[in-house]
Amino acid sequence: MTKSLFENLGGTVGITAIVDDVVEAHMNNPAISARFLPYKDEPKRLASIKKHTVDFFSAGSGGPVTYIGRDMSTTHKGMNINPEEYQHTIDDIMKVLSKHNIDEQSQVNVMAILSSLKDSIVGK
């Protein structure tokens, strides 16, 4: 029996660790850090964003989670994220997946999910 992407990402514990590391990578990435660093001064908001992100990727990867947050267009409305910034976020995510020893096929699957979200995020 084939494991789900959720299982291959380590379930809730694994996805939570990935999200934590991705947020840290974004905060350290000079090309996009300005969008993320302000959340360091808002720990409750940062925790909420991380929880929604974990739930979003858990639900989207086949986990037993129901995502109840906003859709991507609504979440990113008014942020005017450009294609280069979006690419930097993808690069950070892929580096973190490698750091967590996520298998190649799962990385391909995550990339497909990220690519499918681009039009809902960029330029909103």
Results as ranks from 00 to 15, higher is better:
residue 24 E to H: 09
residue 48 S to N: 09
residue 49 I to S: 02
residue 32 I to W: 03
residue 38 P to G: 08
residue 72 M to Q: 11
residue 22 V to C: 07
residue 31 A to F: 04
residue 75 T to N: 04
residue 29 N to D: 15
residue 77 K to S: 09
residue 44 K to N: 15
residue 39 Y to C: 05
residue 17 A to R: 14
residue 45 R to Q: 15
residue 57 F to G: 01
residue 36 F to G: 04
residue 75 T to Q: 07
residue 13 V to A: 12
residue 82 N to L: 01
residue 15 I to N: 05
residue 32 I to V: 11
residue 33 S to W: 00
residue 33 S to Q: 12
residue 32 I to E: 05
residue 17 A to Y: 11
residue 63 G to H: 00
residue 26 H to G: 10
residue 48 S to H: 15
residue 12 T to Q: 09
residue 61 S to V: 01
residue 32 I to R: 05
residue 45 R to E: 15
residue 79 M to F: 11
residue 46 L to G: 02
residue 51 K to V: 00
residue 65 V to N: 10
residue 63 G to Y: 00
residue 75 T to A: 12
residue 12 T to R: 11
residue 12 T to L: 07
residue 58 S to I: 03
residue 78 G to H: 01
residue 57 F to M: 03
residue 25 A to V: 01
residue 21 D to Y: 01
residue 42 E to D: 15
residue 56 F to K: 06
residue 77 K to R: 08
residue 22 V to A: 08
residue 65 V to I: 13
residue 79 M to Y: 07
residue 48 S to W: 15
residue 30 P to C: 11
residue 51 K to A: 03
residue 27 M to W: 00
residue 79 M to I: 10
residue 66 T to F: 00
residue 15 I to L: 13
residue 80 N to H: 14
residue 78 G to I: 01
residue 60 G to C: 08
residue 51 K to E: 04
residue 24 E to I: 13
residue 81 I to P: 03
residue 69 G to Y: 02
residue 66 T to D: 04
